[in-house]
Design a binder for these strands. Sequence first.
DNA 1: GTCAAATGTTTGTACTGACAATACTACATG
DNA 2: CATGTAGTATTGTCAGTACAAACATTTGAC
Lengths: 246, 246
Amino acid sequence: MANSLNLTIDRSSPVPLYHQVVQGIQDAITSGELEPGHKLENEIDLAAALNLSRPTMRKAMDELVRAGLLVRKRGVGTQVVSSQVRRPLELSSLFDDLTAQGSKPTTDILTFSHVEADAEICTKLGLAAGAKVYHFTRLRKVAGKPLALMENWVRNDIVDIDEAGLSQQGLYSILRKGGVNFRLATQSIGAAIATELQAKLLETTPGAALVTMERTAVDDTGRLVETGRHVYRADQYTFEMTLVQR
Amino acid sequence: MANSLNLTIDRSSPVPLYHQVVQGIQDAITSGELEPGHKLENEIDLAAALNLSRPTMRKAMDELVRAGLLVRKRGVGTQVVSSQVRRPLELSSLFDDLTAQGSKPTTDILTFSHVEADAEICTKLGLAAGAKVYHFTRLRKVAGKPLALMENWVRNDIVDIDEAGLSQQGLYSILRKGGVNFRLATQSIGAAIATELQAKLLETTPGAALVTMERTAVDDTGRLVETGRHVYRADQYTFEMTLVQR
DNA sequence: GTCAAATGTTTGTACTGACAATACTACATG
DNA sequence: CATGTAGTATTGTCAGTACAAACATTTGAC
């Protein structure tokens, strides 16, 4: 045990050294090279083996601890946490998640308008009364089967949005291309019963269980860019996440 | 703007300096002293003003960025994020969350046994076939109204659990007192329809919406300590969280 | 007047060095 | 045999410094 991690660090690469270490260890864990419970060498030796300083090594391990892949204990050492491929819930769009999984999602635009925001939306997006927003509802399908019904409001002073673009790609992708750098989002997950309309669109029965999600996203300048209410078919979608103790 | 944070640092305190800064800024934000959108002084000046080194100051701000309270941009500066005070979803028990809110939750023990784990539970807890576990179901009420129905399995080689203790305090509290230091958990949130039995216990109607949650928790030695399936009344409970872009 | 280059500000990354706090082990002591 | 104590290993915290990269603004050229 405690063999020196088969890693190579490229100092001429633009990707930060600590991030190269994060990637390397992550790969070693997912590939099974580092088994659950395996004890790593101590920080100082690891750093020396890779010709890095201890703070850099530590920063890398910090990230992995936060991501839930490693567990540290003072005076003892660092261990690979027990198994199962688990991705922490990150700030990403459903569209991106699905394509990353290899699915080919499609989007039906149900409604699309450019209107004055009502009081509730103004509050949620931190806008002055009377400001205009994009408002649209979409139906997301995978392999022809409906998965989610999404209603969103987006402020209109950042990116121009049109119906054609929305049907081709995810909302977040459009916003990112428009120069929006998302930083964080607050979301709330709950449950509800399908109404007749929802059931019809999602091709299920009224009274079926739905997962509900409300989200408001903030960009790197602190603007509240987007807010939305989504519902998912409970038999086809759950939110997976990893919680880390601070 | 950019007035120097009204903070005092106690160097003789056992609490780390960076954490004192985190607390201080957090308090300033929640108290409204630092308004959303407010731009902070730069790291170097802030550090100097508090007689701290820049790495220490940075570490404090890092935490706040991860917690979703601050937003940073290279070449520009650091801002207080404009948002409602919402704490990120942390690894905590329902019981603790409720008491922290000022509620006084009660627990009814519905079943309690000490049995051989079946194959599924063995897998989830990483146990050898035939290992014994505690298995119990509880009904959690707040102000006399039922909120959650919880079924849990706990490995039995760490802490002794009895029915009396469970009815008095939360599971996590018991485990912590038994020397378990939780580090992370994976959980999955979805939705379902109340069965007749569930409806009866939760004092709602069959077919009502329920939020479902499955969780497996890991301690600081990498042991899979506990796994459980919970259902909550959707009209009384949602999961709130903050997602931070890495 | 418009576009490009230079400049300054601020955060991002990285290194070195030092000491403190905690956990485990082995040993001595009663 | 039990118990406390010292020593060792490992992570946790903190200081100080240097340079790189991204961004915003000003300056300069055409």
